[in-house]
């Protein structure tokens, strides 16, 4: 057996493959396809202080090599997540969980972090300051270094678990945001969230998405994500979880060669529910082909 394990801020994952928040719900939909314990971790559905229905439909548009979504953080709210979803998830997955937290105010991020940091199975808090689909929140915090630092400091003050800030690619210089988060005490970073995009229905002469714009994900954004992970890991010394269009075991290795310590798989789960286990099975084969003995030996190129 090859050693696929990786460590994030002292948290050991048996492999670096993590389903990305928003593409995996709370795991229930995938448990019929495979044993979730194959996964390194799970970043569960972005959780806010109150339940949210999200945006009107259509929320999905197809793109070459990917898709747009404008779901808008639909979730049952932090209290329901803690009372219902996490106990149900524990029956399916015994490994470390990543709690993805979103908010519309610093107070909301803090309240969610205070509650979720107490959950035993939650080992990392991933603070989403990069959702492109909501106004007055989400991405507004992730596109300004001072605001990103403010959320980081506030969450760090209440967190007893490592805090990873999830960054937006919709910025001029992602390293400025990354450095601001690091200086404010972030334990790590997750990147990238989706790229803001748009499609128009030629027949209707109207935007495809009811919300007009949405987040672009899928293989088309992989080179952008890889570039940003490379830039950020060159600019900060805290660990980075790389994501954005990762679809294959080779993408995982490439993302780690760009500097990521672990990798999230997003849109690929939606078109192939077996995407993650397939990647995990292929990973040792690709490592053999490339002469890699342990993922820990992969360093930023």
């Amino acid at each position: 057996m090859k050693d696929l394990s990786v460590t994030l801020s002292g948290v050991t994952l048996k492999n670096p493959v993590i389903p990305a928040s928003g593409t995996f719900g709370f795991g229930q939909e995938f448990a019929g396809w495979y044993d979730l314990n194959l996964l390194g971790s799970i970043s569960f559905k972005g959780t806010t202080g109150e339940a949210r229905f999200g945006n009107p439909t259509p929320r999905i548009a197809e793109c070459p090599a990917g898709m747009l979504n404008s779901v808008g953080l639909q979730n049952p709210g932090v209290d329901h997540v803690i009372s219902e979803e996490l106990p149900a998830m524990r029956k399916l997955f015994s490994g470390p969980l990543i709690a993805n937290i979103s908010g519309f105010s610093v107070d909301e991020y803090v309240r969610c972090a205070q509650l979720l940091t107490r959950e035993e199975q939650v080992e990392i808090l991933e603070i989403n300051i990069s959702c492109p689909n909501v106004r007055h929140g989400g991405m507004a915090f992730g596109t300004d270094p001072a605001a990103a630092a403010e959320v980081t400091r506030a969450v760090k003050a209440v967190a007893t678990k490592p805090v990873y800030m999830k960054l937006s690619p919709n910025v001029t210089d992602i390293t400025a945001i990354a450095r601001a988060c690091e200086e404010a005490g972030a334990d790590g970073l997750s990147l990238i969230n989706t790229l803001l995009g748009m499609r128009i229905d030629l027949n209707r002469r109207k935007p495809v998405l009811a919300n007009v714009m949405g987040g672009y994900s899928g293989p088309g954004i992989f080179p952008v994500a890889l570039r940003m992970v490379y830039q950020v890991t060159g600019a900060v010394s805290i660990p980075v979880i790389g994501m954005g269009g990762v679809s294959t075991a080779r993408d995982v290795i490439e993302m780690m060669m760009a500097g990521a310590k672990a990798v999230q798989v997003g849109a690929a789960n939606l078109v192939d529910p077996m995407a993650c286990p397939n990647i995990i099975v292929r990973l040792p084969e690709e490592m053999d082909r490339l002469g890699i003995h342990s993922l820990r030996e992969i360093t930023r190129v």
Partner: peptide, 27 residues
């Protein structure tokens, strides 16, 4: 009918409001 992403309940792309709360058309 609703425009869907995954079709099996993971992406929340096809949600509607129902009398008993949000529901996924696909699930």
């Amino acid at each position: 009918e609703e425009r869907m992403g995954c079709g099996f309940g993971a992406c929340m792309g096809c949600s509607i409001e129902t009398a008993s709360g949000p529901a996924r058309v696909c699930r």
